[in-house]
Simulated scan of single mutants.
Amino acid sequence: MPFNDAYSGRKVLITGHTGFKGSWLATWLDSLGAQVCGYSDAVPTTPSLFEKAGLAGRIDHRLGDIRDLARFSQVVKTFRPDFVFHLAAQAIVSTSYNNPLETLDVNVMGTATVLEVLRDVDWPCTAVIITSDKVYDNVEWPWGYRETDALGGKDVYSASKGGAELAFKSYFHSFFTKSDVSVRLATARAGNVIGGGDWAADRIVADCVRAWCEDRTVEIRSPRSTRPWQHVLEPLSGYLWLGARLAQDANYHGEAYNFGPRAEQNATVLELLAALAEVWGHENPEHAYKVTGNIPFHEASLLKLNVDKALLALSWEPNLSYRECMTMTGEWYRDVLKGGNDALAMTQEHIASYERFALERGRVWVA
């Protein structure tokens, strides 16, 4: 069984389970035999993978603001999770320019609320706090950022994610290093995640799908910006493997880990769109996308992570090639939105394919 069978029959709480990554994670854990409880303030987009896959009927679906200490504490104490994956956040960079205080409040104080509740847990529990690749002070150098590099950033979104990491560090050293503590914690950082079922605002794949479904040409702001694109299942496999290892070995307690694609998988926005347009079925790229000069907010031209720590400490490594990532992403949207395929079945099929690739390629978490 994948992940040393760590999740079968176990109680797993996901904050932010209605979002793009949270919905994929809930579906995967459900397939692994976990008893999943989700806690989110709302379904963030319409449409959404959460609703299309019917996840409200498959897991214990609960609503609440991640900053509501009393409400979240009540959920944790009644559900008594074995594992917690904290994904609840304000996750859109453009939104942080319109609502900077809300972004800081949700991402920093929301994370602090989770940690405060975990401080009172008196049963064995393993928590993975997910932040972002944006935690790093990005000076746009050509090599990947390591977990020991400076945190920060020039924009509010980066500050909110860096602040979440600082909240984690202070809580860990203040409250979670005592010998009688029942909770083990670690943080995970990843970014540039794509895959089927993302309809968030100002994300390139979601923008493309919205435009192409309406037979419109999508406008792109920064065609030469380079990103290390990765399918959503790549970091999720890292989060799940980190949780499984952390539950078994206290040496991972308090650590931070980057999860990202292979270094050679950097591609420009233009290359990404060309690959997706091909899978979607566009014969003429000029009908698929056009370049616009409208750049409403600052965007880094280069940001990538060094994943050597995950490779050396966890024996985790990315599983998909760039072509496989693009194909799986494009096929999900094409087959669900154009072909009428069932969203849950497609998501489960991609998870099964990803596990099969991992087994064929000797990834340790699926052995």
Rank of each mutant, 00 (worst) to 15 (best):
M1V: 12
F3T: 00
D5V: 00
G9L: 03
R10M: 08
K11F: 04
H17P: 02
G19I: 06
G22N: 07
S23N: 07
A26S: 12
S31A: 14
Q35I: 13
Y39L: 12
D41C: 13
T45C: 11
P47N: 12
G54Y: 08
G54K: 05
G57D: 11
R58M: 09
D60P: 01
D60G: 04
H61W: 11
H61C: 10
G64H: 14
D65A: 13
D68T: 04
L69V: 08
L69R: 12
A70R: 12
F72G: 06
S73Q: 15
V75N: 03
T78R: 12
R80C: 13
A91L: 08
I92L: 14
S96C: 05
Y97F: 13
N98V: 13
L101D: 10
T103M: 04
T103I: 03
L104Y: 02
V108L: 10
M109P: 00
V117P: 03
L118S: 05
P124D: 10
C125D: 06
V128S: 04
V128C: 05
I129W: 06
I130G: 07
T131G: 02
Y136H: 14
V139M: 07
E140P: 04
W141F: 14
P142K: 09
Y145A: 09
A150M: 11
L151E: 05
V156I: 15
G162E: 07
G163N: 07
G163P: 04
S170K: 14
H173F: 08
F176Q: 05
F176Y: 14
D180F: 09
R184I: 02
R184G: 03
A186C: 05
I194A: 02
D198S: 13
D198C: 12
V205C: 02
C213L: 15
C213W: 06
D215E: 13
D215P: 00
R216V: 01
I220C: 09
R221I: 07
S222Y: 09
P223V: 08
W229K: 06
W229M: 15
H231I: 01
V232Q: 08
G238A: 07
Y239L: 15
L242M: 11
G243T: 12
A244M: 00
L246R: 10
L246P: 08
A247W: 01
G254F: 07
G254C: 04
E255Y: 07
N258H: 15
F259L: 03
P261E: 09
Q265D: 13
Q265P: 00
T268L: 02
A275R: 14
P285K: 05
A288S: 14
Y289R: 00
P296G: 05
E299K: 15
A300E: 09
L303N: 06
K304W: 03
L305S: 02
N306F: 05
D308K: 14
K309W: 01
L314S: 01
W316D: 01
P318M: 04
C325D: 12
M326C: 12
M328W: 14
E331Y: 09
L337A: 05
G339L: 07
G339V: 06
L344K: 01
T347Y: 02
Q348C: 07
Q348L: 13
H350W: 13
I351Q: 02
S353F: 08
R363M: 12
R363W: 08
